[in-house]
Lab assay of single mutants.
Amino acid sequence: MAAAAAAGAGPEMVRGQVFDVGPRYTNLSYIGEGAYGMVCSAYDNVNKVRVAIKKISPFEHQTYCQRTLREIKILLRFRHENIIGINDIIRAPTIEQMKDVYIVQDLMETDLYKLLKTQHLSNDHICYFLYQILRGLKYIHSANVLHRDLKPSNLLLNTTCDLKICDFGLARVADPDHDHTGFLTEYVATRWYRAPEIMLNSKGYTKSIDIWSVGCILAEMLSNRPIFPGKHYLDQLNHILGILGSPSQEDLNCIINLKARNYLLSLPHKNKVPWNRLFPNADSKALDLLDKMLTFNPHKRIEVEQALAHPYLEQYYDPSDEPIAEAPFKFDMELDDLPKEKLKELIFEETARFQPGYRS
């Protein structure tokens, strides 16, 4: 834990890192770190609560700039109880001085990944967590956004079992017609939660990839272990087919990539493993919904509104309290091709509203 900075004593240090967030945020305490930044909790002297502050230093890398800009653009436009918001952003007053960006968010005690390492969940908890994931996802999908990296560590939890989806750095506007060349190379989302079509096709992607990830998360809540822990690309596919069985001819016809289709045709026939054999203690309604989410063919996979209306979630289902976005989200430009200098300018502009004396 960093010592509390005395008023006016300059930035606090946390594990050798400068955290320049005073005077409003003090009493910093280390939480963890990701690929390009550290997260601390801090005391907000204005709202009198502890908050989470993520320090991001992305400006050396085009990919990190892209992810940072995506996350900020999306989260500043989203407003939903099951999606983490941005409360404040701290950065230098000029673009030349801006080396880091500090993002202030609600402090959540833990995440689903940490929880599943230590606790076996009751059916009631599984049901409530799944409902909140789908409630947040309904809003995301209504904005025409794909999260693309749903996994237990991106689901934040607090002691009252509130759940918030975080990390929109890989999110995209849904565009089933656009052929994202190089899709697989830039697709760094965790393999275990990846839909089979991501490994088999490169053309376009749809909201059904997020539903697949939610199915993987439900299976993990039922058993405290990942359902498809593939060691590499082909191993991942083999794990999936080992449980779902061989795809039907109709399902194979959806695979545009001939090499991928021929690979699947070359494999020995596998039978589907019954879900109640894998999860003998699970609620039968939970397994019915799991089956509809972990469907090989993305066109037959359940959609988020149908999933919310499934009998497993009937005690929570309330369409009048499951809000959607006001308007579909649009990125003005494809960020993939922009140089990091341009992305830095866009991050600077996007964060201006939090600067003292800002006038829109």
Rank of each mutant, 00 (worst) to 15 (best):
I256W: 07
L265H: 13
N87W: 15
N47Q: 05
A325Q: 12
E326H: 15
F329Q: 09
I255G: 12
L338G: 14
K340C: 11
L163Q: 00
Y64S: 08
K55Y: 07
L252D: 12
Q132N: 09
Q17E: 11
G85R: 15
I53G: 13
L112I: 11
G245M: 04
G242R: 15
L112A: 11
N27S: 08
M199L: 00
E12Y: 09
A352D: 06
I56F: 00
G215D: 02
A6Q: 06
M333H: 07
Y128E: 06
A7F: 09
S248D: 12
A92H: 15
G10P: 12
K73N: 00
A5H: 11
P196C: 01
K300R: 01
A325S: 02
I53Q: 12
D283R: 09
S246M: 13
S266Q: 14
K73D: 04
R50G: 06
A286S: 02
F279P: 09
I255K: 10
Y316E: 10
Y30F: 01
E12C: 10
S142M: 13
D162W: 15
A143N: 12
I56N: 00
Y233F: 00
R135W: 14
V49S: 12
W212D: 02
A219T: 01
V214G: 04
S284Q: 05
I198P: 08
Y233V: 03
P274Y: 12
T63W: 05
H120F: 12
N262A: 09
F296C: 04
L156P: 05
A325T: 02
L252K: 08
F331L: 00
Y358G: 11
G37F: 02
L308C: 12
V145T: 12
I209H: 02
L258S: 11
H269Y: 08
K117D: 11
Y312W: 12
L112K: 09
P93C: 13
T94N: 03
L258F: 11
I324W: 10
Y128C: 05
A260M: 12
D100P: 11
T26K: 12
W192I: 01
H120S: 13
V21D: 08
H178M: 06
K272M: 07
Y128A: 12
S266P: 14
S57T: 03
R79L: 08
D179K: 10
V214H: 01
E334Y: 10
L234Y: 07
P274Q: 00
L267Q: 01
E96I: 13
K48N: 00
L170K: 04
K99A: 04
Y128P: 10
F354G: 06
D337F: 14
L264W: 10
M293Q: 03
S246N: 06
D251E: 03
E186P: 08
R50N: 14
F59Y: 01
L234K: 11
E33V: 06
F354N: 08
C254F: 01
L338C: 11
D321L: 11
A4K: 14
P226G: 04
P152S: 03
F348D: 06
K203D: 05
H80S: 13
L278A: 10
T63Y: 05
M221C: 11
L76W: 15
Q62G: 08
L155Y: 06
Y193Q: 02
G32Q: 07
A325L: 11
E314A: 12
P356D: 10
N82G: 10
H80K: 14
R261N: 06
G242M: 09
K54E: 03
N281D: 09
A195I: 06
W275S: 06
N201G: 04
Y358E: 06
T295V: 11
D283H: 13
I56K: 03
A325W: 12
K259C: 05
A174I: 12
A309S: 01
T63Q: 10
P323Q: 14
D283I: 06
T159L: 05
F279M: 08
A219L: 01
Y102K: 08
V304H: 09
L150P: 02
D167R: 07
E350P: 15
D337G: 15
H61I: 10
A307K: 08
H120T: 12
I133G: 08
T185D: 02
L184A: 01
K117S: 13
L264Q: 00
G245N: 06
L115T: 14
E81V: 04
E250A: 12
I227R: 05
E341W: 15
S202G: 05
N271M: 13
E303Q: 15
N262F: 13
S246E: 13
P23C: 14
D167N: 00
E186M: 15
V39A: 07
C65N: 14
D210K: 02
D318A: 02
G8K: 07
I256S: 08
V51T: 15
N47K: 00
G8P: 08
A9Y: 11
E60M: 10
L170N: 06
R301N: 05
V18T: 15
S213M: 10
S122G: 12
L258E: 09
V21H: 02
D162P: 13
A282Q: 14
C254Y: 01
Y25G: 04
D20W: 15
I126V: 03
A9G: 06
M199W: 06
F354C: 11
L200V: 01
A195G: 07
D235V: 01
G215M: 03
I302K: 04
F78Y: 00
Y233P: 03
V214D: 03
E345S: 14
F183L: 01
D288L: 06
I217A: 07
R277E: 09
I74G: 03
E326I: 15
L343K: 06
E349P: 13
P274F: 15
A352K: 09
A2D: 09
R24V: 10
S360I: 07
A286W: 12
T26L: 07
G357H: 13
S248Y: 01
G242W: 15
L234E: 06
N123Q: 08
F228V: 05
N201C: 12
A327T: 09
I74Y: 08
T181R: 07
G32I: 04
V101R: 04
I83V: 12
E345M: 11
G16A: 09
N158S: 00
K138P: 02
I90C: 15
E350I: 15
N154M: 02
L157G: 07
T351R: 14
L346W: 14
G136P: 12
D149C: 03
K99C: 09
Q236A: 06
R15L: 05
A171Y: 06
K292W: 11
I84A: 13
T206I: 02
M108K: 00
F331S: 09
C216K: 02
K48A: 08
P152E: 01
L278Y: 11
R225A: 06
S57E: 11
L267N: 14
K203P: 02
H299C: 11
T206S: 00
D124Q: 10
K138F: 12
I256V: 07
D179Y: 00
R353G: 04
G182P: 03
R67I: 14
S29F: 07
V51W: 13
K164I: 00
E71S: 06
G169C: 00
E81D: 00
L150W: 03
D288Q: 11
L258M: 01
L289I: 12
V49D: 11
R15Y: 11
N224Y: 00
P58E: 13
T185A: 02
F129Q: 07
I256Q: 05
L155R: 07
K342H: 14
P226W: 03
F183N: 06
A282M: 14
E250F: 14
E81P: 12
A143P: 06
Y205M: 01
I227G: 05
D177S: 08
I103P: 10
E186K: 01
P23I: 15
G230I: 12
S284E: 10
L76H: 14
E350D: 00
K117V: 09
L289Y: 02
G34Y: 07
P356V: 15
V46H: 14
T181V: 10
N27C: 12
R172D: 04
P176K: 05
I72H: 10
Y263R: 06
H141T: 10
W275R: 00
P339G: 09
K292Q: 09
Y36E: 11
M333A: 11
V51C: 09
K330D: 14
P93L: 07
C65V: 09
H310Q: 03
E197N: 03
R79S: 01
F168H: 10
N158F: 08
F59Q: 10
L294R: 07
Y358Q: 06
R67G: 09
R191M: 04
E322Y: 15
H80P: 09
P268L: 02
M293W: 08
D177G: 11
Y128I: 06
E305D: 00
S266M: 12
G37M: 05
K342R: 02
Q62H: 00
V273W: 14
K231I: 12
I165V: 04
R172N: 03
I90R: 15
I211N: 00
T110C: 07
R191Q: 00
D111G: 07
D321R: 09
L265G: 12
P23G: 14
E349A: 15
V14N: 13
H239F: 07
E60V: 02
V188N: 05
D332G: 02
K285Y: 09
L75H: 15
A42I: 07
T110M: 09
D167S: 06
S208N: 11
I256F: 01
Q306P: 13
